[in-house]
Design a protein around this nucleic acid. Structure first.
Length: 217
DNA sequence: AGAGCGCGGCGTCACCGAAC
DNA sequence: GTTCGGTGACGCCGCGCTCT
């Protein structure tokens, strides 16, 4: 794909800021009013509010692609096993783990271990680095919640649910980052293309001016 | 050699919107 | 109303580079 051929060898400061800058650049060049961010001055809370309302990268990119020919689409995920996106190394997602008896779980009812207190910031005491393959493949999940009675069983179930949720979120985060990188690459390419286009138009304008302006001498 | 720094990647939490 | 996926934010870790 064409946008992958750019060999950009500079380092980015912080990824969020960088992609934000790119977005501004593209918006400036194209003069669209995406009004992405006026961040930088606003406090983190406001910024968070603003950022959290942005549509997903896939959505943005797909909208871009419909506007501008040549902008690639991020593929929609097919259902499990229907083929992986082209540029991800097939991740060893232990799909069988998802096959719980209920297929669902309730996040809110989960046990809140003491380490959860770290959510407020400061020192994250929750650093229990669960191995990437926290649960082995083919693990058969426990019985449905309805059959759980003893406190121990309930605790086990809660732990299992939490691990499952963490694992899913882990994979989601990876995928999200991959998309984000793709999105940033796409923006970079678009900036390059638009800059060339802009330059050409300016040159053309100058030429036309020369032709149309009356000679003074 | 090793201290310091910047960066990329990861795991996790919190939050939001969409889907049901 | 509940569940689930997507994503920003945060903190940590490892790596490479530079400086002393």
């Amino acid at each position: 794909m064409w946008w992958h051929q750019h060999n950009l060898c500079f380092r980015h400061p912080i990824e969020e800021d960088y992609s934000g800058e790119l977005e501004k650049k593209v918006a400036t060049i194209t003069e669209t009013d995406e009004s992405t961010e006026s961040e930088g001055v606003i406090d983190s809370h406001k910024r968070r509010e603003i950022l959290s309302r942005r549509p997903s990268y896939r959505k943005i990119l797909n909208e871009l692609s419909s506007d501008v020919p040549g902008v690639p689409k991020i593929e929609e995920e097919k259902s499990e096993g229907e083929g992986t996106p082209p540029n991800i190394a097939t991740m060893a997602v232990p799909t069988s783990i998802y096959q719980t008896s209920t297929g669902q779980y309730n996040e809110e009812t989960e046990l809140a271990p003491s380490h959860m207190a770290a959510a407020t910031g400061d020192m994250p005491t929750y650093q229990i680095r669960a191995p990437t393959t926290a649960l082995p493949q083919g693990v058969v999940m426990a019985a449905s919640p309805g059959s759980l009675h003893s406190p121990q069983q309930l605790a086990e179930e809660a732990t299992r649910k939490r691990e499952l949720r963490l694992m899913k979120n882990r994979e989601a985060a990876k995928e999200c980052r991959r998309r984000k990188k793709e999105y940033v690459k796409c923006l970079e390419s678009r900036v390059a293309v638009l800059e060339v286009q802009n330059k050409k138009l300016i040159e053309e304008l100058e030429t036309l001016k020369d032709i149309c302006s009356p000679k003074t001498d």
